[in-house]
């Protein structure tokens, strides 16, 4: 199975697991499997329209999947995915 690394602030929703094994042939399927196993993660990863939140970045073996094929990027059992937040904000 592929493993997904969970950032520290979201481990409260994966029973404190830093890495979660997931099934799926693509990045999108792997993320769907992750939120299927840990439904409380979903509102923090996806907005109300079902799109990944702007701060959610997914890296496949250290490369941002936006630079690959996004959610359609194929994954193999030996691959390692990482969810890495970007942080933005401002006064209004």
């Amino acid at each position: 199975m592929t493993t997904i690394r969970i950032p520290t602030p979201l481990r409260a929703y994966t029973n404190s697991q830093a890495e979660v094994p997931v099934a799926g042939a693509t990045v999108g399927a792997a993320l769907a499997d992750l939120t299927g196993r840990h439904p409380a993660l979903k509102p923090h990863l996806y907005n109300d329209s079902g799109e990944l939140r702007a701060f959610v970045n997914v890296f496949l073996n250290d490369e941002d999947v936006r630079h690959l094929q996004g959610a359609a990027t194929p994954v193999k059992d030996s691959d390692r995915l990482m969810i890495v937040p970007s942080i933005a904000g401002g006064r209004r």
Partner: peptide, 15 residues
């Protein structure tokens, strides 16, 4: 925090 801050925020982190 602003509404914009909240859209981008994660739980657990201290801001």
């Amino acid at each position: 925090p602003s509404g914009f801050d909240r859209d981008w925020a994660l739980p657990w982190y201290s801001y």
